Amino acid sequence: MKNESGFELCRNGIDYHEIIECIVSALDAKDPYTAGHSQRVSDMALALSGFLKLDREETERIHIAAHLHDIGKIGVPDAVLNKPDRLSPDEWAAMKKHPQTGAQILSKSRHLNELKDIVLHHHERYDGNGYPYGLRGDEIPVGSRIISICDSIDAMTSDRGYRDAYSLKYCYEEIKRNLGILYDPEIGAVALEHWADLTKYVAE
């Protein structure tokens, strides 16, 4: 069975949204910061995909991938994941493996396999200086480029162990300043154009 977008969420009586919620809940139990983060990023990615007028099937694929974008953090050691201070270079290297781990997890399912590239590349940068593969521009899947912006918005507006949350005004200026550097300039411009509607999913 397919939802309106065409992406199959229920096969042989199995509701894959329910399974995805279970997977994300397991990560939330491991990392307090992610509790709610994946949902907010997913909500923003769905809204931004709508503002970009993507077709329903691609929108739903991005929506689900956004919900699972950090699932690879389940493989990051607790001491690194829950460290209240800034990470050391070795700890940061361990953290940066989470997109690959997430893609590997999704590749085990023939139903979720088509989401793995979006998850794998959500930390690439538009200028090619991201990770894990240094893709640039349109080499990066459009879903990954959307999630990158939404992930940054929620990260900046959330309290972390080593800093307080930034304001939405500060976040807006950071997204604007990094168009064409961190973020796709066209997607970023649409995000800024619909800023109030997009950021209603985060708390200031």
Rank of each mutant, 00 (worst) to 15 (best):
D197T: 11
E204M: 11
L115M: 09
D117R: 12
E18H: 13
E21F: 13
I105L: 15
A155S: 08
K2R: 12
R177M: 12
R61E: 02
E193M: 10
C22Y: 12
C22M: 14
L192H: 11
P77Q: 04
T59S: 12
G188D: 00
S49R: 06
I149R: 01
G13L: 12
I146V: 10
I74L: 11
I153Q: 06
T101L: 11
S107F: 02
H123I: 11
P77E: 05
H37E: 00
K73P: 01
R136D: 05
L54K: 10
A165Y: 10
G137D: 08
L27E: 03
H63P: 04
D15M: 03
I118R: 04
Y162G: 00
Y166P: 00
T157H: 08
L120N: 01
D70G: 02
Y183T: 06
D138Q: 14
F7T: 00
Y16T: 05
R61A: 01
S144M: 06
A196W: 15
I14E: 12
Y201P: 00
I153V: 13
R11Q: 09
I105V: 10
G143T: 15
G6R: 13
I71F: 00
H111K: 15
E57G: 02
I64L: 14
L27V: 05
G13I: 15
E21G: 06
F51H: 11
C171K: 03
E173K: 07
S148H: 08
V80A: 08
A29M: 13
P89W: 13
C171A: 07
R11I: 10
P77S: 03
D90A: 03
Y166A: 09
S25R: 12
P132R: 09
T59P: 04
R160Q: 13
A35S: 12
G102P: 01
L115K: 07
A29V: 08
E8Q: 10
I181G: 10
S144K: 06
T199I: 14
I14F: 11
D28H: 13
Y183A: 02
R86M: 15
L9Y: 10
